[in-house]
Nucleic acid binder design. Structure first.
Lengths: 336, 336
DNA sequence: GACGCTTTTGACAGCGATTTCGAGCTGATG
DNA sequence: CATCAGCTCGAAATCGCTGTCAAAAGCGTC
């Protein structure tokens, strides 16, 4: 069944007694073929255990049937869900994703892009990259681009964005509704658009509730756990009073939660904690984390589908991605 | 700088006033070339912003410069570290990984394999697959294979394994040294080799310490958080006494930890908890989890390197992967 | 049975590289 | 000055498949 060296289309043709073109036509459904020949070819394919060479096909057609995905950290719990979504949506039509990580580094990201271009991917999905908009628009001239977390419009380019600002507003509002008035915020890197929007939402919620925004209660992290821990310690050192904390992502919330644990500050009794992302593991922290669900998986799925539409030249329609607060056990009514 | 349509080798040749062959030779360092021409070509490459077409090269050389990676779940926190390791080790020599997930499903895995073969990957790395050994050996006849978590030897195949049994022994022993005598175990699926070995190590430690092995203290999970939670509840229902718990992986330990939290059982004061894997987030659970570090990243790196050696026909040398207990705060001396 | 149309089919030219083969140069040797 | 070995470098075949084009085959009609 499994031949030693790869079977080629030509061998199939010979065995079926037809020309290579005919085999190709049958494989791709490009044209009508007499039923008898179709069967002969199909039998030959089965007998020989033939699998078309995707490389050769890619070369001939000028399409590689693969799309590049630039992620910041292939090992990040958030992006992995997204990658899975991308993989699933692409698999159907026979496309395969090529994942590369940019490591939050603009130069590295450019390298990745070059790598993908060299591999002649049919499109690139960029998950919140650091590349500047202009460069990105330049790339879009040459291949379809789908990008998340950025507000860009252009031909051959679709950007998928979530309403981070509103979601952050909702998260903060949830705390306010619970009676909290002194709410701290651990923000993401200032250069990050998502982080900016979340911070803005936090601010707006306080303002709309006529609560003062105390800048000293805003600490900046880098979206990793360690920075959440650090941020919380910084916050504690100021000796400012606060009864609730909104972290710009779950990973930083984890870090903050550990810092609180270390100090003997209870969650949620002493401090209510809310995160952002709803990572799978947030369901299993102690206590389970209240957070904003942004379905990373759906994000990937939508990105993949948009890419397919872009490639096939269809009009792209990006469905709205719901974003909502998932109340679990790390937040509670303010005491006293 | 960025031409509209891709620059080809031929255009470079024309611009540099040499033949395509020469350009190719310079690109690959295949043969000596007069210095003056080399410079002319290099300038032409720079001027045109030429990037070799990896697809075409793959066709011509019969190598695709990519290696397939079959993982069970692209979104699993453990495997992602591994994927990163693989990516890093492959990147140097210009290879790119192609990730596909088998979803713990043998049929799906076979499909993935077919996909990879069709894409003419130069080798496949299988991260603890479900495919049976015989099939695997069959594949190894056609392309280099690196597989983890299995004990197979063969030409064109290297299997990388960790001493799970010993590590599980060490983990259990750590608990015994702390004075625990009633130690429960949440095992992984019975069909999984890693799970079997860890269970064996647990048994051996108890036996060597002359402690009875109480089968009722062994509950089986599926390596996911939810099953850890379930397992612990089952354990609690038996009303059997235990002061320590060894979970076959960190994810199940997280689930168990939550179940304990729900029942008001403190970790580590009432029950010491130890996991296995040392996922990045284990550093941030409350309390930080004592666990067995198996560097998923290194595993990937080693797998990638072994693959490169296999491809280039070198003798493969697989360095030993250290596995050791990382003591953090979820285990403590047995009280009273 | 010839004629005009439509459907099938095969030959062949690419796609963008690599690689083999041998021609042209160079310099050294007799 | 002729001869030969050693370098460089170009022409052309090749990798496996697609897609165009025109020939061949099939079919209905008169």
């Amino acid at each position: 069944m499994d031949g030693r060296s790869p079977v080629t289309l030509e061998e199939v043709a010979r065995r079926a007694g037809v020309s290579p073109s005919t085999v190709s036509r049958i494989l791709n459904g490009t044209a009508r073929v007499r039923e008898s020949k179709r069967q002969a070819v199909e039998r030959a394919i089965a007998d020989l255990g033939y699998h078309p060479n995707v490389i050769a096909r890619g070369l001939a057609r000028g399409r590689s049937m693969s799309v590049g995905v630039i992620t910041q950290d292939i090992a990040s719990p958030f992006y992995n869900e997204t990658l899975k979504g991308i993989e699933d949506s692409l698999a159907g039509p026979g496309y395969a994703p090529l994942f590369v990580s940019g490591h939050w580094n603009e130069a590295k990201e450019a390298e990745c892009m070059a790598l993908l271009v060299a591999r002649r991917v049919d499109g690139v999905i960029v998950l919140t990259g650091m590349i500047d908009d202009a460069t990105l628009l330049g790339y879009a001239l040459r291949l379809p681009l789908v990008i998340t977390g950025r507000n860009l419009r252009g031909p051959n380019l679709v950007s998928i964005q979530l309403d981070n600002e509103q979601a952050a507003f909702d998260a903060t509002w949830h705390l306010i509704e619970l009676g909290h008035t002194r709410i701290a915020h651990i923000a993401g890197p200032e250069s990050n658009v998502d982080a900016q929007e979340r911070l803005a939402g936090y601010r707006r919620a306080l303002t709309e509730a006529r609560l003062p925004v105390d800048e000293r209660l805003i600490v900046i992290g880098d979206f990793h756990e360690a920075s959440g821990l650090l941020a919380l310690n910084q916050l504690l050192e100021t000796r400012l009073h606060f009864t609730a904390l909104f972290a710009a992502n779950d990973q930083m919330a984890y870090g903050a939660r550990l810092a609180l644990y270390r100090k003997g500050i209870r969650v949620p009794e002493d401090v209510s904690l809310i995160g952002f992302d709803d990572l799978p593991s947030s369901l299993y922290t102690t206590p389970p984390l209240t957070t904003v669900r942004q379905s990373a998986y759906d994000l990937g799925k939508v990105a993949g589908e948009a890419m397919l539409q872009l490639i096939s030249g269809q009009a792209v329609s990006v469905p709205a991605l719901p974003l909502r607060v998932i109340v679990r056990e790390s937040t509670m009514l303010r005491r006293g």
